[in-house]
Design a protein around this nucleic acid. Structure first.
Lengths: 114, 114
DNA sequence: TCCATGTGACAGTTTTTTCTTACACATGGA
DNA sequence: TCCATGTGTAAGAAAAAACTGTCACATGGA
């Protein structure tokens, strides 16, 4: 279901996003229930700017999405929630993904359009 | 049935190891067939010391293993091959893995032995 | 008005990764 | 002996990631 196998580049982004203890915790928290930045920062125990950066990285990788909502008392709150991704990593899956890597392939030329 | 689900720390290591285009290529190559360092370096087109570092990272993550063998003409060759891992990444899997993270959990104290 | 709470963004430091450029040792064959 | 091939390691530059501190703006309620 779902997930068209991501391109190599996309895969690298997702893996890089997940390959960090703090972000893994963030994902765990958000998997349980959506939350907004300040609240999440308190709960996890990190500064808001730092959390913000990590959320951004996760969002760029497509693992979470944020929506700006207006609370009852008029405050703007940015809620984040996890998307439903489903990565399967095995040797063959990696071999497949590697084919679509665009970044510097020393074995070939510069990543010309070819 | 292989893989006991890795600990959070172990998972982070594996993800970090895979989250790099060059290492992804290395995995792809080794998945096709085992190879020794110098040969692989030529094939991929990177310097040997650089490749060495990447191989080391992959090995530490348990994704590949290297064995030092003696070729017919007496040269010592270090052959690497992929282990058979099989990671399944989903929101719930991450939630589970996050529980066993030891690294700095700002929400708790310093990672005391408890 | 001031305070508590939410948002966003910037500059600057520290730490980690990535990559380069050496150097050292060993073996078989010309 | 010298060269080509294999191994290992260390020092240092360059680039990217992680983290801190601070400022600005907005709103509702005391």
């Amino acid at each position: 279901m779902v997930a068209a196998p991501p391109t190599g580049d996309q895969l690298v982004m997702m893996l890089a996003a997940l390959a960090n203890p703090l972000r893994l915790r963030i994902m765990a928290k958000l998997a349980v229930r959506r939350d907004y930045v300040s609240s999440l920062a308190r709960e996890i125990g990190v500064s808001r700017p730092l959390l913000r950066m990590h959320l951004q990285r996760l969002e760029e990788a497509g693992l979470i999405v944020g929506t700006l909502e207006l609370s009852d008392d008029g405050k703007a709150m940015k809620y984040f929630e996890v998307t439903d991704f489903d990565l399967h990593l095995s040797a063959s899956a990696l071999t497949e993904a590697a084919k679509s890597l665009t970044s510097s392939d020393p074995a070939k030329g510069s990543p010309r359009k070819e």
